[in-house]
Design a binder for these strands. Structure first.
Lengths: 239, 239
DNA sequence: CGGACACTTGACTCGAGTCAATACAAGTGG
DNA sequence: CCACTTGTATTGACTCGAGTCAAGTGTCCG
């Protein structure tokens, strides 16, 4: 059930048998959630963390005029709001982008886990630090990269993250996002995302159609977006 | 010596006597560093974390054409690269913006500390999660706020963070940044920062001159920048 | 006194946003 | 099976906020 989560963790560190058993015991309940549901609203106090088993979710913040900035995309295997374990309330909202299956993990169980397994504590601490690293990379995109570079970098990131959990292969993966979603993630309008996707297609770097991504030339795409895999902190990764 | 660090921590949680003693024992050595020195370069493996005692530092990432994005500003009391304790190497660089006094804390000592004091572990985990929250807020700025809103939000953030460690009062604080630095933080050019600062001055919201910030109208400034203090996770904060 | 930075301002450019029309695809209900 | 709705994608014409380029003006400091 939490296989993808284990895959994600194991791509960064080893996990022992007892530790694996403890991790498997974390979920209290598993729930299916339809697309575009806000599960947690900014400011809410939470007592569970949400482990994403399947689907796409995001963290977002919004402004008073209705503009919205996605601050991170989450794929299967991600602990979407592990940081709420120490923060208690969140400074952002969390929603599903596609239909999702999620597991709720009570903070109380995380507390036990971290008492019994210092190594897992460090691993989960590492995991929230990885989220921060992704935030930083997005700051770089939002602040300095052009539209076409932003999308190039984003599609590279998602390719790698999805491949780690077995959801990408042969430079292809499913990504059931709308162009408007991509715009909200990368600080662009849906219209401009459309034009930029066309440019990527015409330059024979990448195709994105009906929720399906095909990377035509990974090296060129990565070079264009100045994608450096280091920020994803993987022990090893075969392109 | 680490008084400001303690002030920062205590603004979020209580710290016991034994804990305080342990924290005070962390620094291995204290060093003075001139302005504009890169202490850690992206990708380097590190064995110490850097506690900023005095001065201004930043985290930054750069692109091949020389463009640079600051991903966070650090003030006295911040553990600038506490996250390197779990990450081991960094995805970004770290440099001083002003002359700084820093304390080096060996990861080995952090390891001992976290073994002996689970509560401090959670506090430090919380601290890195707070950095992530600041990253998210900057993503919102970079992706969605206009230039004038970005600066408004930034000056509010720094006011609050500096006040927490006793370095701001009466809506004034020292901030020895150049306009170019501010541009690199907020995804703008130095020229545009200049024009935007003029606008803030003319609108009687804020003055920034020779490293000195005076907030003329905090409420209006915060409203303009849609600054919501919640993301700084303070137990209480009197404006 | 001269050089190095930082700041300031004006004129012009350009990437991305806005507005609007149209196409397309997937349901849904009659 | 078709009309209708709704959401998403596409494209063109135009606007605008921020970038670029360039020419100053301080100001500090050796």
């Amino acid at each position: 059930m939490i296989e993808r989560h284990l895959m994600k963790l194991r791509a960064r560190d080893q996990i022992g048998v007892a530790e694996e058993a403890a991790l498997r015991a974390l979920p209290r309940e598993v729930i299916d959630v339809p697309a575009r549901r806000t599960l947690i609203r900014a400011g809410e106090v939470v007592r569970d963390s949400t482990l994403l088993l399947d689907g796409l979710m995001c963290r977002y913040k919004d402004l008073s005029d209705g503009q919205r900035q996605l601050t991170e995309l989450h794929v299967a295997g991600d602990f979407v709001d592990l940081h709420s374990f120490t923060l208690k309330r969140l400074d952002h909202s969390i929603m599903t982008l596609t239909p999702c299956r999620v597991a709720h993990v009570p903070h109380a169980r995380l507390a036990e886990l971290t008492e019994r397994f210092p190594h897992l504590t460090r691993l989960y601490w590492h995991s929230t630090n990885l989220d921060a690293a992704i935030h930083r990379e997005w700051e770089l995109s939002l602040g300095r990269r052009s539209a076409v570079q932003r999308l190039a970098a984003l599609f590279c990131e998602l390719y790698v993250r999805l491949k780690v959990v077995g959801l990408a292969a042969d430079l292809r993966y499913d990504l059931a996002l709308t162009q408007a979603d991509i715009g909200e993630a990368m600080g662009l309008t849906a219209v401009h995302v459309n034009r930029t996707l066309r440019e990527l297609r015409e330059r024979k770097l990448l195709r994105f159609r009906s929720g399906n991504v095909t990377i035509v030339d990974y090296d060129k795409l990565a070079r264009l977006g100045e994608f450096d895999i280091a920020y994803l902190y993987l022990e090893s990764f075969p392109t």
